[in-house]
Design a protein around this nucleic acid. Structure first.
Length: 501
RNA sequence: GGGCCGUUAGCUCAGCUGGUAGAGCAUCGGACUUUUAAUCCGCUGGUCCUAGGUUCGAACCCUAGACGGCCCA
């Protein structure tokens, strides 16, 4: 296909197929209103299958239930004086059965000239064919919208990845699996809302445009507000605003919305992606791990009707208790050649990292080195659901230090299929400690670390009013949907993934 | 940012060692009153991603670029 001119006007009648359809539309226009909007359907395809699918031919003939259906004609088989067509609506497909002699004069001739892809409305009664397929036996039928462009071939559908992403509307028309993925995505989000509402959480919305981007280590997008004449950042996380709400007394809050990170695109990264974040006062990271485990089981049961997932050829069982280990013990378990002493000494860890081809930066401390070693050697090997805990304080500037071991924090990540699904921790609610951590981050930024955090004075002020002991967590919705829909790329779970123009 | 692969009819794809491009489906015309990848007969349909270059001659070889896929950073 032509890639460069997607924003330029395309020449009309650029090929014969479109020209033929335009000619049909021109004739249709000449005969009256070509785009009528007064047809009302009273059934969806799935409803017909559900209610009448197991009735016999005789029962259906006897009842002769009148129905009106509408949708896109996705198949058409003309056999002379009788025809079959398939109509696709939001819920599924239903076959139409038409006989010339049962339709008003001329209508059957018109129907024969309509094209696969046209939007039609049909009225008739519920019927079952000799082959046993539930159908609507049509007594009248109308063309509601002429389709000017031919659909992809019915058997192979649309296979070209680029076309599927750029023209998602076509992908959705012809690829059942694509429809299924996005229906499932909607259900997952619906179930998440239900789960949090049931637990007494309040759904909130916090700024997407922030004067100080915070809550994560990432490069932000910058935009400008003309009237106020200020630069604003698209948020990289809602975290600092949600914690302000807990200070305000909303002790259980959650938000499902978009985050933006100005980084590369890959099968796991899109510049805008959807995140669930939630905060619960009077809880700690252990409580959140328990909650997360229950949440995933509930979602799977509600949405997939099973707790055994199949992801890219791998079985992932949510029924078994999720494994729990620390960053340090996980590294040692998966790297038997390493000793604890090598992980606990900066010079030794630095040498280990360099041998792993990690591009070690001089300002990295032991905590950052441990994290890099973990990500390089261990994370991708954690296939079954695993909570990895006790991330170093150095790489967790918003997390509460662990009592008795202040080198690490009360933080965890949930890894499934080698990928981070969730990240949560007991929140740092010591305003002075947080101010100190922000200063360290700001110093890192000065030194050239583009992902380091800004000092957010208002957030410190909020903490000074008192944040109750709180735990908070973020769950990447896109990655969760990938897992549940067996999608190899994040682009497969985004309706309109980011692509070059 | 790097490596590998890809881009040919509306769609899915062939196209050998460089000799002027093919199939299936769809479309169009015809037949057909229970088909469902309907069937049968006949006919259409091309910016071979773009721009240069090599060559008597380029879909094919070379260079640069665009877009996409996968992997790595």
């Amino acid at each position: 296909m032509s890639k460069q001119n997607s924003t330029r006007p395309v020449p009309q009648d650029q090929n014969k197929l479109i020209a033929q359809r335009r000619e049909k539309l021109a004739q249709w226009r000449a005969s009256g209103q070509a785009f009528p909007n007064d047809f009302r359907r009273d059934r969806l395809a799935a409803e017909l299958h559900r209610r009448f699918g197991n009735r016999t031919i005789e029962e259906l003939d006897e009842a002769a239930v009148p129905v009106k259906v509408a949708g896109r004609m996705i198949g058409k088989r003309v056999m002379g004086k009788a025809s079959f067509a398939h109509l696709q609506d939001m819920s599924g497909r239903i076959q139409l059965f038409l006989r010339r002699d049962e339709l008003p004069a001329e209508i059957y001739q018109q129907f024969k000239s309509w094209d696969v892809g046209d939007i039609i409305g049909a009225e008739g009664h519920v019927y079952k064919t000799q082959a046993g397929e539930l159908s609507v036996r049509v007594s009248s039928i109308r063309l509601l919208t002429k389709s000017l462009r031919p659909l992809p071939e019915k058997y192979h559908g649309l296979a070209d990845q680029e076309a599927r992403y750029r023209q998602r509307y076509v992908d959705l028309i012809v690829n059942e699996n694509t429809r299924r993925t996005f229906i499932l995505r909607g259900r997952i989000i619906q179930s998440i809302r239900a789960a949090f509402n049931d637990r007494g959480f309040l759904e909130v919305e916090t700024p997407m445009m922030q004067p100080i981007p915070g809550g994560a280590a990432a490069r932000p997008f910058i935009t400008h507000h003309n009237a106020l004449d200020v630069d604003l950042y698209l948020r990289i996380a809602p975290e600092l605003y949600l914690k302000r709400l807990v200070v305000g007394g909303f002790e259980k809050v959650y938000e499902i919305n978009r985050n933006f990170r100005n980084e590369g695109v890959s099968t796991r990264h899109n510049p805008e992606f959807t995140m669930l974040e939630f905060y619960q006062a009077y809880a700690d990271y252990h409580d959140l791990m328990d909650l997360t485990e229950e949440l995933l089981r509930r979602l799977a049961a509600e949405v997939l009707d099973t707790q055994q997932l199949h992801y890219q050829g791998e079985d992932i069982d949510l029924r078994r208790p999720f494994a729990r280990c620390t960053v340090r013990t996980a590294i040692l378990e998966y790297n038997p050649q390493l000793s604890a002493a090598q992980l606990d000494d900066r010079e030794a860890a630095c040498s280990v990292a360099q041998h792993l081809d990690i591009d070690v930066q001089p300002h990295w401390g032991l905590g950052k080195l441990q994290l890099e070693i973990f990500e390089k050697t261990t994370e991708h090997r954690l296939r079954q659901p695993t909570f990895v805990t006790e991330y170093p304080k150095e790489v967790s500037p918003l997390a509460r230090p662990k009592d008795g071991d202040p080198f690490v924090t009360e933080r965890f990540e949930l890894i499934i299929g080698g990928r981070e699904i969730a990240n949560g921790f007991s929140e740092l609610n010591d305003a002075d400690d947080q101010a100190e951590r922000f200063r360290a981050q700001a110093a890192g930024k000065e030194a050239g670390d583009e992902e380091a955090m800004f000092y957010d004075a208002d957030f410190i002020r909020a903490l000074e009013y008192g944040l109750p002991p709180t735990a908070g967590e973020g769950i990447g919705i896109d990655r969760l949907v990938m897992l549940f829909t067996d999608a190899p790329s994040i682009r497969d779970v985004l309706l309109f993934p980011a692509l070059r123009q």
